[in-house]
Structures are given as structure tokens and as C-alpha cells.
């Protein structure tokens, strides 16, 4: 856990400081506007995967605020 916390802090420091100085201009977001650049770029496949791993592994979690809902065997 401690390692994860430290890693997160480092990541956030990067997110919030140094990089901000060179803000990406609105007209420079052509690549970011592509479908494949969305962080969840294949939502349907992602949902299928969540369901599979939820029922086959002991942990779960992610971006969705949805609960469980499967008494999978």
C-alpha cells in the first residue's frame, strides 16, 4: 500500500506541476480528440472484461461507480 501511495504522489506531482507549464492549446488536441485516445477506448469490450475478471478473480475495481451484481460461480 505504501508503495502505491508514494507512486501515486509522484504521478500526481507530475500531473499537477511541471507539465502544466506547457499547456496543450485547444487547437492542438486533434490527436486527443480521436476515439482511440479516450482512456476507455472500447467501453463495450471493457465491460465484458470487467464482468469476466469480476467473476474469476478475488478483487475488482476501476473507474465505474457501479456496484457488483453477479453471483457468478
Amino acid at each position: 500500500m505504501r508503495i502505491a501511495g508514494v507512486a501515486l504522489l509522484v504521478a500526481l506531482a507530475g500531473l499537477s506541476t511541471g507539465c502544466a507549464a506547457t499547456a496543450v492549446k485547444p487547437w492542438d488536441r486533434d490527436l486527443l480528440a480521436k476515439k482511440q485516445m479516450r482512456l476507455i477506448h472500447q467501453p463495450m469490450l471493457n465491460a465484458v472484461d470487467d464482468h469476466v475478471y469480476f467473476s474469476k478473480e478475488g478483487s475488482t475495481g476501476g473507474m465505474d461507480a457501479g456496484g457488483g451484481g453477479c453471483g457468478c460461480n
Partner: peptide, 12 residues
């Protein structure tokens, strides 16, 4: 981390 998340939002 959540506190840092929140703080980071206002730096830019």
C-alpha cells in the same frame, strides 16, 4: 492521495 488530487486541480 485524494487530498493531493484535489489540490492538484487548482494548479495550472
Amino acid at each position: 492521495p485524494i487530498t493531493v488530487l484535489l489540490a492538484s486541480l487548482f494548479i495550472g
